[in-house]
Nucleic acid binder design. Sequence first.
DNA 1: CTAGTTATGGTCATTTTGACCAAAACTAAT
DNA 2: ATTAGTTTTGGTCAAAATGACCATAACTAG
Lengths: 242, 242
Amino acid sequence: MKGGGTIYYSSANVSERQAAPPSLAISTVIFALRPSESSGRPTLWLPLVRRIREPFKGMWALPGGPLSHAESLQDAASRNLRETTGLAPSYLEQLYAFGGLHRSPTQRVVSIVYWALVQPTEAALADESENVRWFRADRLGELAFDHNAIVDYALWRLRNKLAYGSVAYHLLGEYFTLAQVREVYEAVLDRQLDPANFRRQLKATPEIEETGEYLQGGKHRPPRLYRYTGRPGLDPDNRSTP
Amino acid sequence: MKGGGTIYYSSANVSERQAAPPSLAISTVIFALRPSESSGRPTLWLPLVRRIREPFKGMWALPGGPLSHAESLQDAASRNLRETTGLAPSYLEQLYAFGGLHRSPTQRVVSIVYWALVQPTEAALADESENVRWFRADRLGELAFDHNAIVDYALWRLRNKLAYGSVAYHLLGEYFTLAQVREVYEAVLDRQLDPANFRRQLKATPEIEETGEYLQGGKHRPPRLYRYTGRPGLDPDNRSTP
DNA sequence: CTAGTTATGGTCATTTTGACCAAAACTAAT
DNA sequence: ATTAGTTTTGGTCAAAATGACCATAACTAG
């Protein structure tokens, strides 16, 4: 370990401004299911906020903000999500820390990005305004900073977690039909799945509990309602504020 | 952790320090294979550095340091790894950003942690000294900060990536026998695997290429040598320094 | 009452997995 | 030189999981 770096940083001269540490921000990619405008089938949507100052003024960007001193990373993401969209997530997980040198043209900024899932009942209550709007995840325009790449990565993670994990149920309400779960998979993976085979898989997973209820009011045979029992895996650093 | 960034903040007065953003550090969990002292079979080891100042003075900790202004996160991890251990990793990936409020008793610090794999030829050249020493991954003592939890999480990730991904070959040299790959799996997953079945799986993956060479000098039938062809998946934010 | 549609249960062939066997190929010991 | 011991390598076989597909149940709309 050499001393050069230490001297460089601790020396108080003109370069100290340059040498100031990168600023730290928290951003969140928020996914929710909404019926497609055309087909009516559920599709993935996410809320973006319009930038009201430079850089990228006027462009859409992920909700985010600085990390305040007295909150954990996850709390900061959670608060940010609530403040910008009014939403409470049913799932929240760290995605990645983005720290490329030229993410922002004006200053060096490291963004710790979270991704969240919200249930449709929540999503319906979401604040929407001139500066907060929902977009289809597969039809975003050009976003500020590197946020297109971040969303792409979040989508990749969502697809991965879907296959392996217990993520789909956090996009649905407490009770759901097996066909609804299948529609989530089809929306996220963007391909059709065989209803009978998909059903067989879900019935083999013990976390999905059959209820005595049936979904009434449909046009056809009323499907049985199920419930998800099983807690989400905890983050490795989830010391929440006491 | 090197002194520069710390001094920058600790030289400020109390109120200024409260308002100051959390400091940002990079740490790395470095895994390498070494023969076990008892059985001689390969096991997982990792290098730790002794803390030479408070807090946790005298305890062992993960290699790490501040993020300098002109380098990407991955470059910082790579540099740090080289400076503390003299190693060049064959695999380097971001693990997680740890930002709990009470990770360090003296100040708020957010650590972006990477994990790395080094090949045995590299690992043999590693610097070792009074303040840098290698430990068996399953026999660490009590480490500074939350570093025990970080190592646990890195081990969990390693096991997961092993099953799914292409990680095992980065712990081996360029040429390897199928039995060596199996030993890596057995060391990391900590259970025995059937040689014949394991072989069948590896032969089915196209990234593993048969060579005409055989490993000579063993006590028994000389095994064929293989080579791994296939590039590691890139990080989502790997804009390296130009 | 009938046609249309979804939910649900099932079959069947194919693929993957796990347990196990046996020959090949080499070294070390007799 | 022969044999015993060990690892590599190729193989079988049953069990389990997967994918394609069929048939009936149960409801609504007309």
